[in-house]
Design a binder for these strands. Structure first.
Lengths: 157, 157
DNA sequence: GGTGAAAACCCACAACT
DNA sequence: AGTTGTGGGTTTTCACC
């Protein structure tokens, strides 16, 4: 990705509501040129969307945990992510290398809610769970510093 | 938090660039009322900010990992988060219960970059590391479903 | 907290280089 | 890909309820 696009993505990753006018000032381009680039970055999937970052304490979900899961029956087809996606307390699901198959990040209201969630996870995906409770979060959702050479160029459109 | 604020936060968590005009339509309030509520939610810290969600493959950081760290000298003061915050590859830092003290989420360009990062983490915070590499991410950054009763009311402003 | 309205500002598109 | 120009929509503030 080239310099100006990198700058646009960095700015929007830091302030997702920055106006095109301000992006234009920051990049030295015209408003329409920036507009065009942002739409292209969205279309290419470099920008996947925009989100307000919320304080989970304030919205009544103060307990965060990482839940590592392992299938009870390793020979069964592994469709844990789909089986778990209806559980809205699960913020993220990562397939990982190592002893366990997935790491889930979950947000709940209380220890009791966590207990109930773990039961639902085990029942829904036929897995065992290992839970690591988050005590505090010094920082989170930091914006990336974008590399100069992300990858070799792909085939032309 | 009350019904309309919950709705506003949910909508902005899902689409961080939604206009005040659209938020007004969705909530049945006037544009100015929605505007006022959003500003209040920002000021109260319920909304911490706005971010573009980027595709880390596309920006040249295709390797994600969780790095659990443990102090080499448990009697030394624990200031790992501050000591590590200059490493921009670290997206998040959570203090956790359990055998290790923190879980870091990191984004790097390559296995070699991960190796170098781990050396920097160990050197900067005087810790040992245990790394779990992410193979794929079925989902991530899902918006919260906000509870009706987050907490008892705080003291008046 | 809510409303409507005015002014300032921003977006989206067109025409062109 | 970039620029400028413009009509129309959005944001922000203000006076009032």
């Amino acid at each position: 990705m080239e310099e100006i696009d990198r700058r646009i993505v960095t700015l929007l990753a830091t302030d997702g509501r920055m106006s095109f006018t301000d992006l234009a000032k920051e990049t030295g381009l015209s408003v329409s040129a920036v507009h065009q680039r942002v739409r292209r970055l969205e279309k290419r999937g470099v920008i996947r969307g925009y989100a307000a970052l919320v304080d989970y304490d304030e919205i009544g979900l103060p307990l965060t945990a990482f839940v590592s899961i392992k299938p009870i029956d390793p020979s069964a087809p592994d469709d844990a992510p789909e089986r778990l996606s209806h559980l809205t307390a699960i913020e993220a699901c990562h397939s990982v290398a190592g002893d366990e198959s997935y790491i889930l990040k979950v947000r709940v209201a209380s220890p009791l809610a966590l207990e109930e969630l773990l039961q639902q996870i085990r029942a829904s995906a036929n897995v065992s769970t290992r839970t690591t409770v988050v005590l505090s979060t010094p920082y989170d959702y930091r914006s990336p510093v974008i590399e100069k050479e992300p990858e070799a160029d792909a085939a032309e459109g």
